[in-house]
Simulated scan of single mutants.
Amino acid sequence: MSSTSMEARLAGHTDLAGFRSEARQLLAHQVPPDEVQWQLEEPADAYVAPQSPQSSRPRNVARAATAIVPASFTRLCEFVVLHRDPERFSLLYRLLWRLVHEPGLRNDPGDADMLQAQHMAHAVRRDIHKMKANLRMRSLRDADGEDVQVGCYEPAHHVVEAVAPWLAKRLPAPRWAVFTPERSVRCEGGRLLFGPGVPGAELPRHDAGDADWLACHERVFAAHHA
C-alpha cells in the first residue's frame, strides 16, 4: 500500500452505487489502484427500505470512461460486489483502471484479474440460485394473531438483498420474514425492509417448534414493528 493511500468509504457490504461514485472520483483524479484503501461501513441495525440501485447511481460519469468500459463489466460488477471476498472492491477498481488504461484487456480471455472476477460472479449466481431453491418457509400466527411466513437461510455470500425482490413476487403471503446471519428481511404488503441478522447459532432449525420461530421473529422485529 502506498504511503499516500486514499480511503474510499462505502455504505455497507453491497454498496454498488457507492463504489461507482467513488471509482468515478478516483479515476477523475487519476488515483491508481494500489493507492486506494476501500473501507466498508457496517449496515445500520435499524430497518430501512433499500435504495433503488438505479436512482442512486451517479449520473455524471465521464463520457470517455463510459465509452471505454464495456457493458459486460458493469453487469459483472453487480454480482462481484455480492461476493464475500474482502478484496472484491480492490479487484473491481483495479479492473476498471486497467480497462480505461489498457483497452486490449477486454479482448484478453486469459487475464488473471478478469478470470478471478468472473469466478466470483459465478459463485454469487450459484449462491442466489441455491437460496431460491433451498429456502423453506413455514406459516405461523404472530403475537397479534396475524398470519406470517418465516424462514431462515445461511448464504455463502451477500445475496439476501438480491433474492428478496424475487421472494416478494413468488411468496403468496403478504407478510413474511427471512433471517440470515448477516441480514434479515421482512415483507409487509409488498414493501421490503432490511435490517440486522441473527447469529447462526441462534437461527431456528426448520424443524423447530412454532414457539422458537415466534421468539426469533419477535426478537428481531418487535422493535421495528410498524
Rank of each mutant, 00 (worst) to 15 (best):
S3T: 08
S3L: 14
M6G: 03
E7W: 00
R9N: 06
T14D: 09
F19S: 08
F19P: 04
F19Q: 10
R20W: 11
S21Q: 05
E22R: 14
A23F: 06
R24C: 12
L26K: 03
H29P: 00
V31A: 09
V31M: 09
P43D: 03
A44C: 11
A44I: 00
A44S: 11
A46E: 12
P50V: 08
P50L: 11
S52V: 05
S55N: 01
R57M: 10
A62G: 09
A65M: 00
A65H: 09
A65C: 01
A67H: 07
A67F: 03
I68Q: 15
A71K: 07
S72H: 05
F73V: 05
R75P: 00
R75Y: 09
L76A: 05
L76E: 08
E78H: 10
E78S: 12
F79M: 04
H83E: 11
H83T: 09
P86M: 01
F89P: 06
F89G: 09
S90C: 05
L91D: 03
L92Y: 01
L92P: 05
Y93I: 05
L96Y: 10
L96T: 06
L96H: 03
L96E: 10
V100P: 00
E102C: 12
E102D: 14
P103W: 05
G104E: 12
L105Y: 02
N107D: 13
N107P: 00
D108V: 05
D108G: 00
P109F: 04
G110Q: 14
D113Y: 03
M114I: 06
V124N: 01
H129D: 11
K130Y: 13
K130E: 15
K130C: 11
K132N: 08
A133T: 15
L135T: 15
R136V: 13
R136K: 08
R138K: 12
S139Y: 00
D142N: 15
P155I: 14
P155F: 10
V160P: 04
E161M: 08
A162G: 01
A162Q: 04
L167E: 07
A168V: 11
L171W: 00
A173C: 11
T180H: 05
E182D: 14
R186D: 10
R186K: 04
G189W: 08
L193V: 01
G195K: 02
P196D: 08
G200E: 14
H206D: 13
D207E: 13
A211Y: 03
W213K: 12
L214S: 02
A215S: 11
A215H: 06
C216Q: 08
C216F: 04
H217S: 01
H217V: 13
R219H: 07
V220I: 14
H225M: 07
